[in-house]
C-alpha cells in the first residue's frame, strides 16, 4: 500500500536526480538573502529548485507550490481568489522564503512563515524525496518536519515543494502616519493592526479589516496623534535585528543610525548589523546533532551554518 504522502511527480524526481547522492550542493533562489549563514563553499554545485503552482484550492485555503516559484508569481495567482500567504514579498522565491523563515514586515496582518508551512517535500542528502507534515490546516501526525525545515537555510534538505496555508486578503488596507504619537500607546490601543512601524520619529500604522472596523480604528488613531493617510511604505531594507517587543523603546539609544522598528513584533531594520550572542551550548549541541543526522557528510549548502555568528 502506497503512503498518502508518497509522490511520483516526475518534476520532483528529476530534481532529486540533480541533487544526487554525493558531492557538495546548494540551491539558489533569487539570492536576495544569499549571505545568510556565512559564505557558501566554492566546491558546491549550484542548482535551482523546480517551479510552478501545482494545485491551488482556495476553498481549502491551501496551495501546493514548487520551491523555485517566485513569491510574486505565487501571490499574483492567489490574488485572483482574494488570498495571500505569510511569505514576504521582497523579490525572492518560495523555497528561499521558507529556507530563510523571516516574516513579512506586516507580520500581524500576514501571519508567520513558520505557522504557514503545512507540508514540505525536500531532497535529502541521500538524494531521496522526503515529505513531512500534511495537506490539512490542522495536523499533529508525527514529528514536525516542516518546522524544522523552515528557517534551516537549506542545510538539512533541498526544499522542492511546499503546501502553504493561504489567508483571505482583508477587505480594506489603509496606512496612516504621525510624527507626534507614542507608537507603543498606539499598539496597546489597537486591537489588531496590520503593522506599526516606527523610525524614532514617525509612526506608520497599517489598518486592515472590514471598512467599518478600519474607520473605528482611525478614530482611535486620531485620539493618539495627528495622523494623516499615506501611501503604503516600501518594505524596509538593510540589516535585520531580532529583539523582544519590550526592547524597542530603547532602540534610539543604541546608536545604530537610521532604523525602522516593527512595534509589537521586535524586528528592527537598520544599516548596522546586530551583534548576536552565540547559541547556548545545549542548543548548539542539538543543532550539531541535527545537522549530523540529516547531512552526515556535510554536502548540503556547505559553509552555511544556522545560528552561527
Amino acid at each position: 500500500m502506497t503512503a498518502v504522502l508518497h509522490t511520483s511527480d516526475p518534476v520532483l524526481t528529476a530534481f532529486a536526480d540533480d541533487v544526487g547522492t554525493d558531492g557538495p550542493v546548494a540551491i539558489e533562489g533569487a539570492r536576495t538573502r544569499w549571505s545568510l549563514g556565512g559564505p557558501l563553499d566554492d566546491s558546491a554545485r549550484i542548482l535551482t529548485a523546480p517551479t510552478g503552482v501545482v494545485e491551488y484550492t482556495p476553498e481549502e485555503m491551501i496551495v501546493t507550490v514548487r520551491a523555485g516559484t517566485t513569491v510574486a508569481d505565487l501571490h499574483s495567482e492567489l490574488a485572483t481568489k482574494g488570498q495571500w500567504t505569510a511569505l514576504p514579498e521582497r523579490g525572492g522565491t518560495v523555497g528561499g522564503a521558507v529556507a530563510v523563515g523571516q516574516n513579512d514586515f506586516r507580520r500581524p496582518a500576514r501571519g508567520e512563515v513558520r505557522t504557514s508551512v503545512l507540508q514540505v517535500r525536500y531532497v535529502s542528502a541521500e538524494g531521496r524525496i522526503v515529505s513531512g507534515g500534511g495537506p490539512t490546516v490542522k495536523n499533529v501526525s508525527g514529528f514536525d518536519i516542516p518546522r524544522l525545515i523552515t528557517g534551516s537555510l537549506g542545510t538539512l534538505g533541498c526544499i522542492a515543494e511546499v503546501i502553504l496555508r493561504t489567508n483571505p486578503i482583508p477587505a480594506i488596507e489603509r496606512w496612516f502616519a504621525s510624527d507626534d504619537t507614542d507608537p507603543f500607546a498606539v499598539h496597546a490601543a489597537l486591537l489588531a493592526p496590520g503593522a506599526i512601524l516606527w523610525d524614532g520619529t514617525t509612526t506608520t500604522v497599517q489598518l486592515v479589516g472590514h471598512g467599518v472596523d478600519v474607520d473605528a480604528d482611525v478614530t482611535v488613531l486620531t485620539s493618539h496623534g495627528s495622523f494623516v493617510e499615506v501611501e503604503p511604505p516600501e518594505a524596509p531594507s538593510g540589516e535585520r535585528w531580532s529583539l523582544a517587543p519590550a526592547d524597542l523603546p530603547a532602540v534610539p539609544e543604541l546608536g545604530i543610525g537610521p532604523f525602522v522598528a516593527e512595534v509589537g513584533v521586535g524586528i528592527v531594520h537598520a544599516a548596522t548589523p546586530q551583534v548576536r550572542e552565540p547559541l547556548d551550548p545545549g542548543v548548539r549541541l542539538i543543532h550539531e546533532r541535527m545537522k549530523n543526522e540529516f547531512d552526515p557528510a556535510g554536502r548540503l549548502n556547505p559553509g552555511r551554518v544556522v545560528g552561527a555568528h
Binding site: 518546522r147 524544522l148 523552515t150 531580532s242 529583539l243 523582544a244 524586528i267 547556548d280 543543532h287
Partner: peptide, 18 residues
Amino acid sequence: VMLGGLDAEPDGYDLRGV
C-alpha cells in the same frame, strides 16, 4: 536548555516549534 525566545526571530533551527 532554552528553546526559542521572546525576540521576534530567535536564531537557529526552530527547535521550539519542533
